[in-house]
């Protein structure tokens, strides 16, 4: 699915990365808890989150995510948007909640990311 379609399906506003809307995203990951994003074993995924913090963008950057979609009509502060712009991370924002956003994207064929299994961790 192209980022352009992600924005259309979720009626999202594109905050940064307008020139990157033809980028393909393969998978989706929904989370507010950033440690869960840090256990994704794939790259080039769409991070769907209710977090508007700088850390959410930085997690996406470290994980080589394709883009961040912020839900629930939250709008990040200007420094966060500026950071995403500079880091080359497309930032989208939708009024819809996490449940509906994931539901709509899933029904349009966006598949879930794979995670490192918990049983793989030492314990």
């Amino acid at each position: 699915m192209k980022l352009r379609e992600v924005a259309e399906v979720t009626q999202a506003e594109v905050l940064t990365g307008r020139e990157l809307l033809e980028r393909e995203v393969d998978k989706g990951c929904g989370a507010d808890l950033l440690s869960d994003v840090l256990s994704v074993v794939e790259e080039n995924f769409l991070l769907v989150t209710g977090m508007v913090t700088l850390q959410a963008v930085r997690v996406a950057e470290v994980m080589n995510a394709a883009a961040v979609l912020i839900v629930r009509g939250k709008r990040p502060l200007e420094p966060v948007i500026a950071y995403a712009e500079e880091a080359g991370i497309p930032l989208l924002a939708t009024q819809k909640g996490m449940f509906e956003t994931c539901g709509l994207l899933y029904s349009r064929g966006l598949r879930p990311t794979r995670f490192r299994r918990v049983s793989e961790y030492a314990g």
Binding site: L33, L34, S35, D36, T53, Q55, Y121
Partner: peptide, 10 residues
């Protein structure tokens, strides 16, 4: 969004 108890394991 922190403190899920996966830090050291991860």
């Amino acid at each position: 969004g922190f403190g899920a108890g996966m830090g050291i394991p991860n």
